[in-house]
Design a protein around this nucleic acid. Structure first.
Lengths: 107, 107
DNA sequence: TTAAATAGTAAGTATTTGCTTACCGTAAGT
DNA sequence: ACTTACGGTAAGCAAATACTTACTATTTAA
């Protein structure tokens, strides 16, 4: 399953901060790296993970690799999570109804 | 920030499968552990992480620790993520509008 | 064409993290 | 009281993962 990659990718704080940085707009690798506490190659490695999770994508402009958020991947993940939370919460409803029904029997 | 704990908690596949198991309803630790490929203490440790992330909670019944999904924590995380994705996607809109405006100037 | 800048990859290290076994306390059943 | 079941924690180990430096290729600028 693909969402596993996204879960894993966002599980790391450095990758999350890279992802959040890209929310402002497309950036080259050096620009992403500057101001961060880890080296540029480390950033490159994180970018690879985010890219494989389809959360970001890249376009090459000359010698610059410009990374940006991957709209489709993000939408897919959001949809997955919407269902994920809905399923999670559904059992509360089911359980509440079940308990209610059992209480009716007691009357 | 609290959502960091949730991101981290769901970053591990074993914890996700525990979480998904609890979607069916409340379960004691031994019941969660059975059928899983890791030991009961390992499950206990994962439960601790999920609990600290407020994704699950526990009620003690006699000698049994019954874990269940934490409704409020899940709703909080869902709301956070809704905003998270919206923010992520907002820059596409802003960027598209900016590009459009620049193109108008060319006429 | 030489130099400087961008960025990916490889190799190695160090830290983190997940797992196991062993142990302990507590509660319920005999 | 003794035993059995439940489950958290500690210590130690093994595996994964994040990071660094060094190297390479490619492209732009001087």
């Amino acid at each position: 399953m693909n969402s596993n990659l996204a879960f894993n990718a966002l599980g790391d704080p450095t990758r999350r901060s890279i992802f959040e940085k890209l929310q402002q707009g497309p950036l080259s690798v050096v620009h992403i790296a500057e101001g961060m506490s880890v080296s540029r190659p480390a950033v490159s490695q994180h970018l690879k993970v985010l890219k494989e999770a389809k959360l970001i994508s890249l376009k090459t402009v000359g010698n610059n690799n410009i990374y940006e958020l991957n709209r489709e991947g993000i939408i897919a993940m959001r949809n997955y999570l919407d269902k994920f939370w809905d399923d999670a919460l559904a059992n509360f409803k089911a359980l509440a109804e079940k308990t209610e029904k059992e209480n009716e029997h007691l009357n």
